[in-house]
Amino acid sequence: MISKACELKRNKRVRSTSLPTEQRRRSFALVDKGLSEKEAISEASRCLGTLPCQSCDICALLCPDLCITWNEVTEQIEVDYDYCKGCGICAAVCPKKAIDMVQE
């Protein structure tokens, strides 16, 4: 089965904190305080380039049963398990190893 391939949690961007307005008006200190390590890693993890599934569609192209499809409603890639024989080609060719073969 395809695991976590297109699981996308919606989370807003991390905003860096600014100097309080009263302090800004009387000093030339830097306004933007920047991100902490925790904030930076959580913000960087939002990048689509770090997701396991990159929507390259190689799995769908090579599926002998044509059972990996794009679901327009959920906007996710999904496997039609009624037709999937479990050959494992998709898991073998996935360049990001986003597909796991799970024992039934």
Binding site: K12, R13, G34, A40
Partner: peptide
């Protein structure tokens, strides 16, 4: 298209 664009500049500053 999902939520917000990444704060790329803030990440570079980090």
């Amino acid at each position: 298209w999902i939520d917000d664009p990444l704060s790329i500049r803030a990440l570079k500053r980090y």
